[in-house]
């Protein structure tokens, strides 16, 4: 048997060699950038090219209604999108996991994965073709005589919501399906044998079993929605008011990196807070949910 203690020095050297690339990547590309962002966000301009430490960028966020309204709106819409995704995805996952057998099951699961492999840009573009004033849905409604003139479906909150739910679907369907598959059919049968009906079996057997997947699915969907940029911009247009857009504006358009960094730190904090809360509520470990 090879034991770890047998050849101490070469193993230590080997460990160091494996550790170095990881640490370099982690520190230089993940941790330091975030700390730099935090550092910059705490600097306020006192004179041209002269900065001092202070909280003015954060104070600016709380005193300017546009900023915190956008922030709140992004958070609320992300929560609604997460709930909608869960409600739409659950029956599909159940259908794939429990009502289908053999070939059809694998096929439908692959069908769910396909849109995810396609670039987000292409998917959103598809929705634009469908929903714009001269788009397919509008033309179809005119053709069947539902409306007189063309209708613009783009640039409303409902459209943004549609796009968000669409691009999050996979992250809910996949964990739900695999968890529901692991639910033994005999539990459901037992539920019925003991006098339960469809509703009570659903709430007392299926939902408790799926709870870990529901929570991890919701965490991932919420995170991705909050950080989404393309969908709100392209489907919502000028009225989208999404927080990542504010960050982009501060950095690239206004070149106010201090303010932009403060926004970045805020977004990252709320995102981490939600993940942490979700994990606490479900008593799951971060490593397990993420992999």
């Amino acid at each position: 048997m090879m034991t770890k203690g047998k050849s101490k020095t070469p193993l230590k050297l080997g460990l160091l060699l494996l550790l170095c690339p990881l640490l370099l990547w982690l520190v230089l590309l993940v941790i330091l950038p975030q700390l730099t962002m935090l550092n910059i966000s705490l600097q306020e301009r006192v004179a041209p090219r002269i900065y001092e430490y202070g909280f003015s960028n954060y104070i600016e966020f709380f005193t300017e209604p546009l900023y915190w309204n956008t922030f709140l709106r992004t958070a609320v819409m992300s929560i609604i999108a997460t709930v909608l995704t869960l409600i739409i995805a659950f029956p599909i996952s159940y259908y794939i996991a429990k009502m289908l057998r053999g070939r059809a099951k694998g096929l439908l699961l692959v069908l769910c994965l396909i849109p995810f492999w396609v670039s987000e840009l292409v998917r959103t573009y598809g929705w634009m073709i469908l929903l714009r004033e001269s788009g397919v849905v509008s033309s179809f409604l005119q053709y069947i005589g539902m409306t007189e003139g063309p209708i613009e479906f783009l640039y409303t909150d409902a459209t943004i919501m549609l796009g968000l739910v669409y691009s999050s679907m996979l992250f809910m369907v996949v964990p739900l399906t695999s968890t529901l598959e692991s639910l033994d059919d005999s539990y459901i049968e037992a539920g019925y044998d003991l006098g339960g009906n469809g509703l009570s079996v659903f709430w007392q057997i299926i939902v408790p079993h799926a709870k870990p997947a529901i929570i991890s699915g919701c965490i991932v969907v919420f995170m991705l929605t909050l950080g989404n940029y393309l969908t709100p911009i392209l489907l919502g247009g000028k009225s989208s008011l999404w927080f990542t857009e504010q960050i982009f504006t501060q950095f690239i358009t206004r070149f106010n990196w201090q303010q932009g960094s403060a926004f970045g730190v805020l977004l990252l904090s709320i995102s981490s807070l939600i993940v942490w809360l979700g994990l606490k509520l479900s008593r799951q470990s971060f490593s397990k949910v993420m992999s």
Binding site: I114, P115, V122, R123, Y125, G126, I129, L130, Y166, M169
Partner: peptide, 8 residues
């Protein structure tokens, strides 16, 4: 799921 991909 497929509608936007098909129209593209």
């Amino acid at each position: 799921l497929m509608a936007p991909l098909v129209v593209v």
